[in-house]
Design a protein around this nucleic acid. Structure first.
Lengths: 74, 74
DNA sequence: TAAGTATATGCTAGATAGGGTATAAATTCA
DNA sequence: TGAATTTATACCCTATCTAGCATATACTTA
């Protein structure tokens, strides 16, 4: 599941509209909408603020196996 | 480990300087430095670009247990 | 269908991230 | 210790993110 859809899912699970959610999290309504629409260039601190409110956080996970160091096979 | 330190660790593990790294990833040197210094307000898409290069990605993880819906115990 | 609610999109203004560059500080190594 | 390398900090400039508002579109229910 994408970040956008996961957050949307968690918000709905918490029974909040975007309006209520943005107010309680402390970010702009517009941001919540952009976020849930999958805008890629959002600010990380804002995302973390949202996730923290939802009792979640981000972690770095290895892409099991094939690295992507731009396959430097000369 | 923090996002900043993890990325720095992965970069060094790959044997690259910040200069080489930024060039190969395709982001500015300035960004790499801000990122590794723990600047919280970096852009998510840039972070993902870096992580993808390193063969990693971000995932949403639940903070096991205590939610943080700002403890709305009235 | 209509009304009410919720979400999506377009716009502007203000704030700031990122790129580039220069320099300072730290680190490495002979 | 000194030189070379790497990393950190400071500055300016441009691009764009966020907030806020208005409006349009979707969704729900009577």
């Amino acid at each position: 599941m994408t970040l956008a859809k996961t957050i949307q899912h968690l918000r709905k699970q918490a029974g909040m509209t975007q309006v209520e959610f943005s107010a309680r999290v402390g970010v702009g309504l517009r941001f919540v909408r952009d976020l849930e629409q999958g805008k890629p260039s959002v600010r990380l601190d804002k995302v973390n603020q949202v996730l923290d409110f939802l009792g979640h956080h981000l972690e770095i996970i290895s892409n099991h196996g094939r690295k992507n160091i731009t396959s430097s096979e000369s």
